[in-house]
Design a protein around this nucleic acid. Sequence first.
DNA 1: GAATGAATTGGCCAGTCGGTCAATCGACTG
DNA 2: CAGTCGATTGACCGACTGGCCAATTCATTC
Lengths: 249, 249
Amino acid sequence: MPILIGETQPDVQDLDMLETDEETPRRRDPEATRQAILEAAEELFVCHGPSATSLSQIARAANITKSLIHHHFGSKEELFAEVQQRHFQEYFEAQKEMLESSDSTSSLLEDSLITYFRFLQSHPESVRFMMWSTVEGGDDGCPKKAEKGLFELGIQKIREAQERGEIRADLEPFFIIKTLLALPMAWFQSRAETLQLVDSEIEPEALDELYLRDMIAIFLEGVRPRPTDADPQSPDRQSPDRQTSSSPD
Amino acid sequence: MPILIGETQPDVQDLDMLETDEETPRRRDPEATRQAILEAAEELFVCHGPSATSLSQIARAANITKSLIHHHFGSKEELFAEVQQRHFQEYFEAQKEMLESSDSTSSLLEDSLITYFRFLQSHPESVRFMMWSTVEGGDDGCPKKAEKGLFELGIQKIREAQERGEIRADLEPFFIIKTLLALPMAWFQSRAETLQLVDSEIEPEALDELYLRDMIAIFLEGVRPRPTDADPQSPDRQSPDRQTSSSPD
DNA sequence: GAATGAATTGGCCAGTCGGTCAATCGACTG
DNA sequence: CAGTCGATTGACCGACTGGCCAATTCATTC
């Protein structure tokens, strides 16, 4: 629904005048135009993909002319790069907020897992956008700094939890995060196919909850320290504290 | 390398005559043309995606004319549908072979996990193709039958293992499979980004192995039955055998 | 009240897209 | 050998693509 921004010419003028008085008269607002283009482009990119989205469609959706896109952003590629950067910036900011607001109780991983699941559940565009970026987005690496910082923060938190004995110490924190991210992401990536695979009368949201429950059960049990540390019951997967210092990053 | 089939006109004629004598003279071979188009199209579709691949490119790669594509397949959409169906058919056949050849020892899940991981590792095209199909493939549902059958087979095997006490009985088999598939798939989907995220001197294959090890450790430990069934040590995740009969499919 | 320069417009470009068509080619059938 | 029919070709189509440019409109500055 955020396609049609527009409305900047016909009569909103008066409202803008009322709202902002004569401080910011707001006609011919280049910043608003930029935002309108960005939002329209993101919606269309997410829906049809970059190469299947034409500048004409974006212009039509944003209620502006095609030339304006070239004026504000250089080319289609640059526009997509900007949309990409904007999207991932918001995405990583949201993730960082989540991670930092998480209280360092023993429920660190469970909280993160649930929060990430809920985030993807309520932001299906993000799932699609990440797929588009993976599959045909240029190797720009624009948000890689933020992602890297996010990973390092998570790794640090997990290390602390491992030292507190709350998480198995024989697992590499980096891979714990990878696993934690993989479980919700893969679910929502194939959600449509899954739904028509289980062609039952169950509502999608209910299926989400069922998956969430089992996914949490498997993951948490998988990273939980053994009840008896020197349990000889499964000798071949003893995992005598693999070198914890050889983090891959 | 399977792009340039061609060679059907210049001098292969003689070789074909030698090989197949006069039984199948093999000039103007429509079946070979179809295969050439399909292979060229699959390669290009996987690489650039359906909408970014033009019929001209496919024709050039297959050493035939664009009109021939329309002659053998109706349109670009139909061509992609056929490529998609062919790919998923081979994919599901391979998966079925794996699943059926798996000896029903207690290593069912571990074998499946490793086998699937190795499959994706050696078939990166499949990973990309599935992403393309998810993100812009039509809702054809051509291989859904095969996939459904595959899931049912896996569910049955897991049920038996659960009754044998080898797998936690409080987990829905369907979600166990979903989790099992998610872990390798998500890894290879974001493999490129991961590699440049851990910008170290480690080789990609070594990183694969490290992830595989931890992923197996987490997953197997997560689905393994508790050592002590009536262990009161974690009271809130007792999970008193959730109704196992309410499979979502 | 010009003047300046950015924002915005519509028209235009060469190129490519998917698709169609008539004509040719070639291998079988009789 | 002529006839038939599918495989194959190249020319062609209208539509649309991303991009460019001159002209216009407007907000701001002297």
